[in-house]
Design a binder for these strands. Structure first.
Lengths: 191, 191
DNA sequence: ACCCCACTAGACCGAGCGGTCTAGATTTGT
DNA sequence: ACAAATCTAGACCGCTCGGTCTAGTGGGGT
C-alpha cells in the first residue's frame, strides 16, 4: 500500500507513513520505536517533537494516513463505474493487487493498524469513525449509481465486512485470489 | 469465550487456556509471559517444561484450544437446525452472546490469536488449516441440510468472511448487535 | 527404603522497550 | 546581524521482555 513517497515530504509525514507501513506488517505492539526511526532515518528527538505522546500519537497519525489512502482507492474504483456491481468488483481487484504488493503478510491496511492499536478509548473511537467513513463513502457511491438509500447502506456494510474477512482469509491462504472471488458473494441483493 | 474451567485441569491445559484468553484480548505481541504466568499462577519453569519453544509453542496450543471451542459452537448451532438459514442465524446469535461475554475488546477468538501470532511459516500454516477446518465444518452442515455441494462450499466461505469482518465491526462499534444483523447478508444465494 | 523422574519454583540474564532530556543545528522575524 | 523559535540529534534511563538454568519436591515403581 501507499504509493511511492519518492519526493521529500515533511518529517512528520515521513514518520506517519513509515509507521503505517510497519504497523500494517507487524501490528502496533510488534514494532518498536527504534525500528520505525531507523526505517525513517530520523532520531528520537524528531518523533517526540512532532508527536508529544509518542507511539500512541504516531498510531493515530498512521491510521489516519492509511484511511485517507483507502478512501482514495474506493473513489478510484467507483467514480468511473457504470453500476454498483462494476465499482465493487473493481474495488476488490484493486485490493487484491494491493495485497500482492504488500507482501502477503499484512492485513487490510486500515484495520491492520486499527485493531492492533493502543487500547485506549480515544483510539477505539477513531477506529469506529474511520470504519464508518469508509462504509458511508461506499454507500454514497452506491446511491449515485442508482441504489435506493436503505439498500445502499446495507450493501456498503456488507461490502465492508466481506472485504475485512476476505482479507484475513487471503492472508491465511497467502493468495490474493481469495479477494478476487469475494464479489460473487455481493451480487445478490440483501434481504 | 471458553467456558468456566472450574474443575482443575492439567497444568498444560491451564496455560493454554489462560494464554488463549489473553492473546484474544491483547494480541500475541501485546501479552508478556509474566502476565500469562501470573494469571495462571504458575512459575516459568512449568511453561518451559510443557512448551519447549516457549511463547510460540504456547500460541499454537492456545489457537488449537480456541479452534476446538469454535467448532463446538458451530456444531451446537447447526445440529439442531431445520434449515441452513436457521443454523447460520443461530451461529451469529451465539457469537454475539460470546462477544458480550468477552468484554467487547476481543476479536474473534480464533482469528484474534491467529492473525497476531508469531510470524513464522508454521504458524501461518496452522492459521490456514484452522480456517479451512472451520469453513469445511460449516459446509458439511450445509450439505446435511440439503444444499448441493458446490453451493454449500460457497455459502460456508461467505459465512466465514462475514463473521470475521462482522466481528471487527462489532468491536469498533462496541456492539454485539452488529453480529446479529449479519445473517441478513447471507440469506440470498451467491451467484 | 530407595531412587528416579516428571514437574514446580523462581533467580537471573542480555536485549530491547518506550520515554526523557540536554545540546546543537537550522530557520525565521526584525 | 542577532535572537527567538523550531526542529534534529542521540545519549541515557528504568523497566519489562522472552529465555535459560539450577535447585528443589513429590508421587510411583521395585
Amino acid at each position: 500500500m501507499m504509493p511511492a513517497m519518492t519526493k521529500q515530504h515533511s518529517t512528520k509525514d515521513r514518520l506517519a507513513w513509515t509507521a503505517a507501513r510497519l504497523f500494517q506488517e507487524k501490528g502496533y505492539e510488534g514494532v518498536g520505536l527504534s525500528e520505525i526511526l531507523s526505517n525513517a532515518k530520523l532520531p528520537k528527538g524528531s518523533l517526540y517533537h512532532h508527536f508529544q505522546k509518542g507511539k500512541s500519537d504516531l498510531a493515530i497519525a498512521a491510521a489516519t494516513f492509511a484511511s485517507r489512502e483507502m478512501l482514495r482507492i474506493i473513489d478510484d474504483a467507483f467514480v468511473p463505474a457504470k453500476t454498483y456491481e462494476d465499482g465493487m468488483t473493481t474495488l476488490f481487484f484493486k485490493c487484491a493487487k494491493l495485497f500482492d504488493l504488500m507482501g502477503k503478510w499484512n492485513g487490510c491496511p486500515v484495520s491492520g493498524i486499527l485493531l492492533s492499536g493502543p487500547r485506549n478509548g480515544a483510539f477505539r473511537e477513531l477506529s469506529e469513525a474511520i470504519f464508518n467513513d469508509w462504509i458511508t463513502r461506499v454507500a454514497t457511491h452506491a446511491e449515485k449509481l442508482g441504489l435506493p438509500e436503505p439498500e445502499a447502506q446495507d450493501r456498503a456494510t456488507h461490502l465492508f465486512v466481506v472485504l475485512q474477512g476476505g482479507w484475513d482469509l487471503a492472508r491465511a491462504r497467502q493468495s490474493s485470489d481469495v479477494l478476487r472471488e469475494m464479489p460473487k458473494f455481493l451480487r445478490a441483493a440483501p434481504a
